[in-house]
């Protein structure tokens, strides 16, 4: 499968052009965020505070890496299961998020929000954390360091391999597989 190369931040035009089933290689900056980070970020925004990163055009990677061994920027870093972020995802898209990387199907509310905001849901191969780590060139803690593996970390990635699981028009590979 020929892969489509995209760079972050994602523009609306690029995001809307990606179709479910496309293989994509992402280059640029992406941010790790999972359960606890989503909870904190959305609680802060609800209180009128600014999120710790500007989400406009950005991609959240639902992941909690293993620690970096000496001489490496990061340890294993595969995706975590996405449905746990479903309750928070529409809010993050409202704040400008254009892409999410995770694994497993999303709720209807999330797909509806993706259609509204022109956002894309990418699947990375779960349990391929060592392979995906090779695509991470640098890692920098950004927020919530006290959460350990659940902190928000800025990853600089090169040709990070994902598949479009759900596109901005709502086409969904998981729904197709389950049918």
């Amino acid at each position: 499968m020929a892969a489509i190369r995209v760079t972050t931040p994602l523009t609306d035009a690029v995001a809307r052009k990606l179709k479910a089933g496309d293989s994509v290689l992402i280059t640029g900056v992406i941010y790790t965020a999972r359960d606890a980070a989503h909870q904190r970020l959305t609680e802060a925004v609800a209180k009128g505070e600014r999120p710790p990163v500007d989400l406009k055009g950005q991609i959240f990677y639902y992941a909690g890496p293993s620690p970096a061994p000496p001489g490496k920027p990061i340890g294993s870093v595969g995706p975590t299961t996405s449905y746990r972020m479903d309750a928070f995802a529409p809010k993050t898209m409202e704040l400008g998020l254009k892409g999410m990387i995770g694994k497993g199907p999303r709720a209807k509310e999330v797909i509806d929000a993706m259609k509204r905001h022109g956002a894309v849901y990418f699947a990375a191969v779960g349990g391929a954390g060592a392979l995906l780590a090779k695509c991470v060139k640098a890692a920098k803690p950004v927020a919530y360091a006290d959460l350990g593996a659940e902190a928000i970390t800025e990853l600089t990635v090169e040709d990070f391999p994902v598949i479009v699981a759900t596109d901005a028009a709502g086409n969904d590979l998981y729904a197709a597989a389950a049918a």
């Binding site: 909690g64 890496p65 061994p69 340890g75 294993s76 349990g127 954390g129 060592a130 780590a133 090779k134």
Partner: peptide, 10 residues
């Protein structure tokens, strides 16, 4: 080869 965990969720 790289002595990394197969999956980050160890």
């Amino acid at each position: 080869e790289e002595r990394l965990p197969i999956c980050q969720d160890t």
